[in-house]
Design a binder for these strands. Structure first.
Length: 592
RNA sequence: GGAGCUGUGGUGUAGCGGUCUAACAUGCCGGCCUGUCAAGCCGGAGAUCGCGGGUUCGAUUCCCGUCAGCUCCGCCA
């Protein structure tokens, strides 16, 4: 690079620079060699510009251009020139101009890449991840990283302007019961003891409130050793926020404002900064999900009352035994084949639904194997409730409420996608509130915290804590965008007695609570302000703003579904000396 | 822990019991070419069909297992 200094990024050149001598650097996107004249599309992170290498300008550079190949790294010095008439390329931001190259330096050569460095590639993800540095070179990936950067900056600026302090919390912390599996880090200095990487900075941020920091935020890296999904990575980033002296009504509007600003400053999207709110119960009833996608209808309707008295045993027994009979209207699907419907039943079975009953609405009325179990007025009621018209297909699930919700909720999404009912470029933000405080764990036969054990119950439900935990509602809220949970938080418990009651409800003995959370309980005795907060899944947010289907596309170095990094092959083995220092012996069962 | 989908030259696909001595596109290599922009034209190289086993006279094709990636259930306070 000696003697060469870049003067512009590729797309900073326009007709304004005509006649100027500029120095550009970048990668060879494509080379078009006409024998007597060579065109090179030079690419940097801003985009592409055409440079022209002609023997009439500099024969030495022209000779060199012959050996240039894709992805070679170049520096070119030349004059900006208006393109000759008829050769303007309207598809290129810099299409009106070109750079007539005088000096050209090949800064580095490149092997032929294993896939094309261009957008919209459908390459095996194996390859993309193995050669992530090439994948990240693709324009859409670079733009995603820039979007991510702008998003982070927008959030930081907003929070700074609202008096939040960015404070770091430890990555080496301690394992706590409840919640996801921890990633453990052995302590060399303390044999047999382990740190845990944080699942979230929950306890630290609450302690910061006790410490009087008043308003905290952090772009926090979090770690959870659980199975992966398209929107779940073992290592991810949260916008972590906590505030003192607040109630739900202080937090939600502020967060709406933050997200509205984020949308404006990243993808130029204007959204109404007052999101619809649904209670958890309402969301489950209408959409079968605690993160409903409201971009389309096809809501779930209840016909348990009608089914209770009908002659169809499956329905009647579910309705009478504390279960539900609910249905959705797959509008216009009356023409589905028997096999199509069987496939839908198989799909519902994934969610433990034992069957999928259906009725076809045609010109003569309702056609179905189960019609005979209903009288005319019952059929009319069903039709009315589902707003069923000729050509519709009604799908029923009868089961326990959670199975009905899961199956119909999933079916609703599945059908909407298949029927292309989901409008593009629609961003439906909403809040889900009043979550249950507890969830019953059938395996462990005990109550577990639905959000986390530090969530405050709603005041009017506090008397139920011991008598009827299942009915206690939490001061918890999730922000949902297009059917994906992008953030969640709560008002926290800030009194020792309440926290102890909570631990007891979760089945922790006093000793266990003291051992694991003693510092927290102690802290609560030294003047803890009422506080609450929220954490956003930053990766998920970026994924949605970037219109991607997986957070792997917005994380620079993601892991595969089996939690490995195909570029550096992490996790890797370590040598015995390291293990010995850590006082660790392996006990691996050989696969036969 | 479980279910499903995918795996064929560098890349993306076709072929789904035998004319497969594996096709097409693109990329790659060489030649020609001074206005292209997915440059063009001509020529060439490049694949033990993910791996292992089985069925069969014969397997890229069918079956079983296995590995890898993906999607999902469980799991994810």
């Amino acid at each position: 690079m000696s003697g060469i200094t870049r003067t512009h990024y590729c797309t900073e050149i326009s007709a304004v620079n005509q006649g100027q001598t500029v120095t550009l650097t970048g990668w060879v996107d494509t080379r078009r060699d006409h024998g007597g004249l060579v065109f090179i599309d030079l690419r940097d992170r801003t985009g592409i510009i055409q440079v022209v290498i002609s023997p009439d300008i500099n024969p030495a550079s022209f000779d060199k251009a012959g050996e240039v190949r894709s992805e070679y790294v170049l520096a070119v010095v030349g004059k900006v020139s208006q393109r000759p008439e008829g050769t303007v390329n309207p598809n290129l931001a810099t299409g009106e101009v070109e750079v007539l190259v005088d000096e050209m330096r090949i800064l580095n050569r490149a092997k032929t890449p294993p896939f094309y460095i261009e957008d919209g590639v459908e390459v095996d993800e194996n390859l993309r991840l193995r050669y992530r540095y090439l994948d990240l070179r693709r324009p859409e990936m670079q733009q995603t990283m820039m979007l991510r950067h702008r998003a982070g900056r927008s959030v930081r600026e907003f929070l700074d302007q609202h008096g939040f302090l960015e404070i770091e919390t430890p990555m080496l912390t301690r394992s706590t019961p409840e919640g996801a599996r921890d990633y453990l880090v052995p302590s060399r200095i303390n044999p047999g003891r382990f740190y845990a990487l944080p699942q979230s900075p929950q306890l630290y941020k609450q302690i910061l409130m006790v410490a009087g920091m008043d308003r905290y935020y952090q772009m926090a890296r979090c770690f959870r050793d659980e199975d992966l999904r398209a929107d779940r990575q073992p290592e991810f980033t949260q916008i972590d926020i906590e505030m003192s002296f607040v109630q739900v009504e202080d937090i939600l509007p502020l967060m709406e404002e933050m997200i509205a600003r984020l949308c404006r400053e990243t993808i130029d999207l204007e959204i109404t900064a007052s999101f619809p709110r649904l209670t958890y119960q309402e969301a489950m009833d209408r959409f079968g999900s605690d993160k409903p996608d409201t971009r389309f209808g096809m809501e779930i309707k209840d016909i348990t009352d009608v089914a209770a008295g009908c002659g169809f045993k499956v329905f009647a027994s579910a309705a009478q035994g504390g279960g539900q009979v609910r249905c959705i209207n797959a509008t216009g699907c009356a023409g589905m084949s028997r096999k199509d419907i069987d496939d839908l039943a198989k799909f519902a079975a994934i969610y433990q639904a034992k069957g999928l009953a259906y009725m076809i609405v045609n010109g003569d009325g309702i056609k179905s194997a189960i019609t005979k179990f209903f009288n005319d007025s019952e059929l009319d009621t069903i039709r009315e409730r589902l707003d069923a018209r000729e050509g519709d297909l009604l799908l029923f699930v009868a089961d326990k409420p959670d199975v009905v919700a899961a199956a119909l909720g999933a079916l609703r999404l599945h059908l909407a996608e298949r029927l292309e009912m989901i409008p593009k470029n629609k961003y439906n933000f909403l809040w889900v509130t009043d979550f249950p405080l507890f969830d019953y764990d059938e395996e462990e036969k005990r109550w577990v915290a639905m959000h986390h054990p530090f969530t405050s119950p709603r005041e009017e439900d506090m008397p139920l804590l011991e008598s009827d935990p299942g009915r206690v509602r939490a001061q918890a809220y999730d922000m949902v965008l297009n059917g994906i949970e992008i953030g969640g938080g709560s008002i926290r418990i800030h009194r020792r007695e309440m926290q102890e009651t909570m631990f007891a409800a979760l089945g922790l003995t006093g000793e266990e609570a003291q051992e694991k959370f003693g510092f927290m309980l102690d802290a609560f005795e030294y003047g803890t302000p009422p506080h609450g907060g929220i954490a956003f899944g930053f990766d998920r947010l970026i994924m949605l703003l970037a219109g991607r289907k997986t957070i792997r596309d917005v994380i620079p170095f993601p892991k595969t579904q089996s939690a490995t990094d195909l570029m550096n092959m992490a996790p890797g083995g370590v040598d015995n000396r390291q293990l010995k220092e850590l006082h660790i012996k392996l006990d691996i069962k050989e696969k036969k």
